Amino acid sequence: MLSTPGLILETPYLLGKTLNDANGLDINTEKKIIEERLKELSYDKTSTDKSITLAMKDLGVERANKFGWPNTYVFTKALGEMILGHMKGDMPLVILRPTIITSTYKEPFPGWIEGIRTIDSLAVGYGKGQLSCFLGDPESIIDVIPADMVVNAMIATMVAHANQPSCEIIYHVGSSVSNPLKYKSIQQSGYKYFSKHPWINKEGKPVIVGQVKVLNSMASFQRYFSLRYLLPLQGLQVANLALCHAFNGTYTNLKRKTNFVLRLVELYKPYLFSKSFYDDMNTKKLCQLVRENEADMFYFDPKTIDWAVYFENTHLPGAVKHVFK
């Protein structure tokens, strides 16, 4: 999904359209740029697999930013939609755009999740005591949807459009319009859950969590982060060197926390102040069709979710059980 402000409609992206009205988006040109850059790097004898990977990631972000997308992931998804719409001919085309996918609401059982997904990086870092500050607007809307609701919406769309000779329709499967969830609500749920059920670390001791300090501008975050992490880290580094690495463990631990917070901020920066809302009128009509046909087993209406109950009793326990290491 995208992080542009305002109501984002369930409409297709036409071939060559950009988010910032920049000219020159051509898929064949993008493909050529990638191939030529990869060839250059491969012929460079000083390049390593790691340096090539990093260089190609940087190129992807650069090309995405040029046309208004925040990262390569959403840029390539948009390109994929353009290609499908352009080449579909008379074939029916149905596109689902799920927002941030979280653990299952009900099936195959509540809280099931496989691997760390988006906001779970924050949950893991917070529960393990690695995250004491973060960047963002507590009042911003975080658009999430449980995994089983996404699957049910997929099944419903296949049935609804199976016999249509030609169509092109898009479904936003999310919650920001029907049942908005604020960033601060997730923060509060995390504090409540991990206060009652602290993570037990490798030493067998519970990790005591406090409220995460959320800074609402990059400048204030940088000031706080410098005082909270960087200055102590620099002081510890000097002391560690002076005392023959006597503080190696403490220094390594603090450096790991510092890098972790910086990585998360960089990863989520495009979304932390999001003013986007995803229109779901098509999805609402599909929900109504499911109800009319008494197919309630294929539930995907986000209005049925109590977010506080879901995060404290389902999602966070599921994340701890299935993805915490």
Rank of each mutant, 00 (worst) to 15 (best):
L2D: 11
S3H: 07
P5Y: 13
G6R: 02
G6V: 02
L14M: 10
L15W: 11
A22E: 13
G24C: 11
D26P: 00
N28D: 14
T29F: 15
E30M: 13
K31N: 08
K32P: 00
K32G: 01
I33P: 00
R37T: 11
L38K: 11
K39V: 09
L41R: 08
S42R: 15
Y43E: 12
Y43K: 13
D44I: 03
T48S: 15
L54I: 04
K57D: 13
N65W: 03
N65H: 12
P70F: 06
N71S: 08
N71W: 06
N71G: 06
V74R: 00
F75C: 02
K77C: 05
M82V: 08
I83M: 12
I83G: 02
G85H: 14
M87I: 11
M87R: 10
L93W: 06
I95C: 06
L96W: 07
R97L: 10
T99W: 01
I100K: 01
T104V: 02
Y105L: 13
F109C: 02
P110D: 04
I113S: 00
G115M: 09
G125V: 04
Y126L: 03
G127A: 15
K128V: 05
L131V: 13
C133K: 04
L135Y: 02
S140H: 04
D148C: 01
D148P: 00
V150N: 08
T157I: 08
S166G: 04
S166Y: 02
C167I: 14
I169T: 13
I170Y: 09
Y171P: 03
S176R: 05
Y183E: 04
Q188I: 09
K192L: 10
K192V: 10
Y193T: 04
F194H: 05
H197Y: 15
G204S: 12
G204F: 13
V207E: 09
V207N: 11
I208H: 09
I208M: 08
G210M: 05
V212G: 09
S217W: 05
M218P: 05
S220E: 13
S220K: 14
Q222G: 00
R228L: 03
L230P: 01
P232K: 07
G235T: 01
N240M: 04
L241Q: 11
L243R: 10
L243P: 01
H245N: 14
F247I: 00
L254T: 07
K257T: 04
V261Y: 00
R263P: 00
L264E: 10
V265P: 00
L267F: 15
Y268W: 03
Y271I: 05
L272M: 13
F273T: 07
S274V: 05
Y278L: 15
D279I: 05
D280F: 02
M281R: 15
T283W: 04
K285T: 05
L286H: 08
E292H: 11
E294S: 11
K303R: 15
I305V: 13
D306Q: 12
D306G: 03
D306P: 04
A308F: 09
Y310T: 02
F311P: 00
N313W: 01
P317T: 06
V320P: 00
